[in-house]
Design a protein around this nucleic acid. Structure first.
Length: 244
DNA sequence: CCCAAGTCCTGGTTGC
DNA sequence: TGCAACCAGGACTTGG
């Protein structure tokens, strides 16, 4: 289901609204609208979603939603949501963002969290470290690619039990979570197949991947061979030689 | 047939 | 035994 309320409700409530705030928490894009109901338009790109502006008006087969925006003058801009695989979501809610946003932990990249916070969240957790990183209730914004990359750089095995990390290891993890996301942002995203920014440009993070998608290749740190396993139901690539 | 960047839901297990 | 917390795995979807 693309929308969390009827199309009629969108058509009825959106026209004439002004976007008064644009924010992001984890993988969610939050647009706050004016008016008394505290309306929020919330977008999640899923796996293959794209948000594009100023595109030509030709229909694209994967366009799921089109917003028409009035600029300051007579200019009209088009905000288009495309999603090949339909895992993306568009929510329109009153009284704040949808509940799924309220359960998110602090933003992994921009949030005010530290190693102490991670240690507290890890206490007693028997889930593998990889699952801990992907759980958006702990930190919001880490997906499969950044989880594998973070663990490679931190030298930690994805199958480690979350509660087994030493303070030193948690410190390394804390640093690498921020460092990898930072590099991803600096390189404007990771384009394996679909990702583009709002102007249609691909990112460059895929050029510096050390672990993700490199099964069978040589580990740049220890010369071992990267292996693929399934952890928490997700394909996971790591180096058994130097990720402990 | 296998694999893929996302989250949600269900049902089983564990431990207090 | 009761219950909650926790965790694994499936469902969803289309394409390479």
């Amino acid at each position: 289901m693309l929308l969390d309320c009827s199309e009629g409700e969108f058509r009825e409530r959106l026209p004439g609204r002004t976007v008064i705030e644009v924010a992001r928490l984890g993988k969610f894009l939050l647009l706050r609208l004016d008016g008394p109901e505290d309306l929020h338009l919330t977008i999640h790109l899923g796996m293959t979603g794209q948000v594009l502006v100023s595109q030509p008006e030709v229909a694209h087969p994967h366009t799921r939603f089109t917003f028409w925006l009035n600029g300051p003058g007579d200019e009209v801009r088009r905000l288009e949501f495309r999603d090949m695989r339909k895992f993306g979501r568009v929510h329109l809610t009153s009284n704040g963002p949808p509940s799924r946003v309220r359960t998110l932990g602090p933003d992994a990249w921009a949030g005010a969290w530290d190693a102490e916070y991670l240690a507290e969240r890890m206490r007693g957790r028997k889930a593998p470290l990889k699952a801990f990183l992907l759980d958006q209730r702990n930190l919001a914004g880490i997906g499969n690619i950044y989880a594998d990359e973070t663990l490679w750089w931190a030298g930690l095995a994805p199958i480690r039990v979350a509660s087994s990390l030493s303070p030193g290891e948690i410190g390394r993890l804390t640093h690498e979570i921020r460092a990898r996301l930072d590099e991803g942002v600096r390189r404007l995203g990771c384009t394996l197949a679909d990702f583009v920014d709002t102007q249609g440009n691909p990112g460059g993070f895929q050029k510096v991947l050390q672990a993700y998608g490199r099964r069978g290749e040589v580990c740049a740190r220890c010369g071992g061979t990267l292996v693929r396993v399934v952890v928490a139901g997700r394909g996971t690539t790591y180096c058994p030689g130097c990720q402990r």
